[in-house]
């Protein structure tokens, strides 16, 4: 073998990079996300499978309808009326961002930009009390 002094370190670096995910996780406590279910409700605006996969699309549609088209009428699902709103609709039942939204979002490293503008009801209340 020729140039072992350069090739062997190069290969070690390569294998080290490739195995990053394996040694990075060593010692990390990995827990499955546990989004907290709201008390007193058994169904959402869409069936479970659909809301899980499509909630971001639905929120985008609601945003466009409410903000751009002014269609603020409530949504009916399972005999209940829901407001077309993140803060007053979704978070009326799922009150905590930390215990509901962030559970899965953190796990999957999803950083939606909802919170660039919105505040959670909890935070809003705390803000109101502080003032």
């Amino acid at each position: 073998m020729y140039d072992a002094g350069k090739i062997i370190p190069g290969l070690i670096v390569f294998v080290g990079l490739m195995l990053f995910a394996i040694y990075y996780n060593v010692g990390n406590k990995i827990e499955d996300p546990k989004p907290e279910k709201p008390v007193g409700y058994t169904s959402c605006v869409l069936p479970l499978e659909e809301i899980r996969a499509e909630h971001m699309v639905l929120l985008n549609e609601w945003r466009d309808e409410v903000i751009r088209e002014g269609k603020r009428e409530k949504v009916e699902a399972g005999g209940k009326m829901y407001e077309k709103s993140l803060q007053n609709g979704c978070m009326h039942c799922h009150t905590s961002q930390e215990k509901f939204c962030d559970q899965c979002h953190k796990y999957a490293s999803v950083n939606p930009y909802c919170w660039d503008c919105h505040v959670t009801p909890e935070y809003g209340k705390a803000l109101g009390e502080a003032n």
Binding site: F20, A21, Y24, N25, N28, I30, M56, V57, L59, N60, K106, Y107, A108, S109, V110, N111, P112, Y113
Partner: peptide
Amino acid sequence: HLRLFTEPVPSFVALTEFFDGILQIGAP
């Protein structure tokens, strides 16, 4: 893709994702 293989997700992965999706087109 390292976000799927690491927990907690390292910051350089989150940063890469942020800049890759910085146009904020659509959801996801």
